[in-house]
Write a protein that binds this DNA or RNA. Structure first.
Length: 420
RNA sequence: CGGAGCGUGGCGCAGCUUGGUAGCGCGCAUCGUUCGGGACGAUGAGGUCGCCGGUUCAAAUCCGGCCGCUCCGACCA
């Protein structure tokens, strides 16, 4: 993409109405636009980052048998009354509205009820199960207070997976598979080293649920973690009894601030029973379905990545999620520089490299500052100097020193690595 | 929802105490000079001072109400 054609502009100063470093950088670099407290629009770069995170998640969900759908956001009140979750005293963060005829509808904060109801129309035999369905869509939650920019919004992008198993073992096996898949996702996003499977409140369905907590000073949660065992306990369930149950010693744990980047729940048969989703076993008997739900906050991850992968000059995106691979800075506007940079842009693009071509009539300093702020993995310079040397200048965002490359090695260096 | 702070061109801010024709920096436009780390000069455009009401000859400024934003707390299936 040519920078001159992009409507988004970067900002020199921090926005006054954000205090989170990550949100400030995302706004300054033109990834997001704040509509109101806890509500953000995603601009071209931000939309691409979300798509890249989603694509990592999608690949791992598909690998464990997930089938992707896109459920409606408008919710049918009757389904939620069946499970007694429509009442504002039961779920206090509903956004609700009304049809012209007065019928109440909700904006989805989660999708257990509608997805169970939908499945009733397609399943009846034990041969139909297990089933794993997920979606990546916008959720609405009427939080009392939005916070930390895009990390805790009222409207946010979330991946939610629902599992439907015939018995406890089948459920437990899949639950473990999801745990593995989640760790793969955090690894691929560069957060694996600081993300911990964490024991948290299980609600009424099981003893624990599991959260995935990434260590960060902007975290809203406190966890007690064992680095050796790669496990943690959320403060909300931390007690001697829990420690004993998990075989952990108090003195081996340290407390840290962390961000909840995922949460997996065993739901038992509560929603499947309430909405009458059953199956017939091989003896012709009606049986309950055991459910699980598994969430990952996609937009929250973007906020966390911006917070974590940054330095004093701006963002430093991991290659997997960066909106482009390389920032091509054309310095000066001599006809040979314009020609050379234009041709390089074309050539790299044809080779599959995603290039953000800064073809504006701006100073070198401004282009370098923008390249640092936006934080693409590489910065490539074409100038009279590089043409004179018959070399290109390539610099990693994460490193201070540039290297000089000829055209062939440049194209090779920027070729996309194969993703696992 | 309790406590605190804030709201003035696109962005960041001053002005308010002590009422008297709305300012600075960045950005933007035009011209010229520049051109490897956010260049310089000249000229210029752009503002219902969050909204409503009150006091006053006169309100960005004083008073009341409302709305919005931020932080702390509570809350977060």
């Amino acid at each position: 993409m040519r920078r001159s054609q992009l409507f988004v502009k970067t900002r020199y100063q921090e926005p006054a109405d954000e205090t989170s470093k990550g949100a400030q950088l995302l706004i300054r670099a033109g990834f997001i636009h704040k509509e109101m407290a806890g509500v953000y629009s995603y601009l071209p770069f931000g939309k691409q980052v979300l798509a890249n995170i989603a694509s990592v998640i999608r690949e791992e969900m598909n690998k464990i048998g997930g089938q992707e759908v896109d459920m409606s956001i408008l919710q049918n009140k009757e389904l939620w009354e069946a499970s007694d979750r429509w009442d504002d005293t039961k779920v206090d963060n509903w956004f609700k509205s009304k049809l012209v005829n007065g019928t109440e509808v909700g904006l989805g904060f989660s999708h257990e009820e509608p997805i169970v109801n939908m499945l009733r129309g397609f399943t009846s035999s034990h041969k139909d199960f297990p089933i794993y369905i997920y979606q990546i869509q916008t959720k609405f939650r009427n939080e009392l207070r939005a916070r930390s920019g895009v990390m805790r919004g009222r409207e946010f992008l979330m991946k939610d997976l629902y599992s439907f198993s015939r018995n406890q073992k089948e459920h437990d096996d899949f639950y473990e598979k999801v745990t593995q898949a989640y760790m793969k996702i955090y690894n691929r996003l560069g957060l694996g080293d600081i993300t911990y499977k964490t024991f948290a409140s299980g609600g009424v369905f099981s003893k624990y649920s599991h959260e995935f907590q990434t260590l960060s000073h902007v975290g809203e949660d406190t966890i007690y973690l064992s680095k050796a065992k790669k496990l943690a306990i959320n403060k909300e369930v931390y007690s001697d009894e829990v420690l004993q149950h998990l075989g952990l010693k108090k003195e081996d744990l340290v407390d840290e601030k962390a961000v909840e980047v995922g949460n997996i729940f065993s739901l038992g048969t509560k929603y499947s029973d309430a909405l009458k989703l059953f199956y017939t076993d091989d003896n012709g008997q009606r049986q309950s379905i055991i459910m699980g739900c598994y969430g990952i906050g996609v937009s929250r991850l973007m906020g966390l990545l911006a917070e974590h992968f940054a330095d004093d000059k701006g963002l430093v995106w991991p290659a997997n999620v960066a909106p482009f691979d390389v920032y091509l800075a054309r310095l000066g506007d001599s006809s040979q520089v314009v020609k050379e940079a234009g041709e390089l842009y074309k050539r790299l693009t044809q080779a599959g490299t995603l290039v953000l071509y800064d073809d504006r009539d701006a100073s070198a300093g401004e282009k370098f500052a923008d390249a640092d702020l936006i934080g693409l993995p590489y910065r490539l310079v074409v100038s009279d100097k590089t043409i004179e040397n018959k070399m290109y200048e390539l610099k990693k965002r994460s490193s201070a020193k540039p290297e000089q490359l000829n055209a062939e090695s440049l194209i090779k260096a920027l070729a996309k690595p194969k993703q696992s």
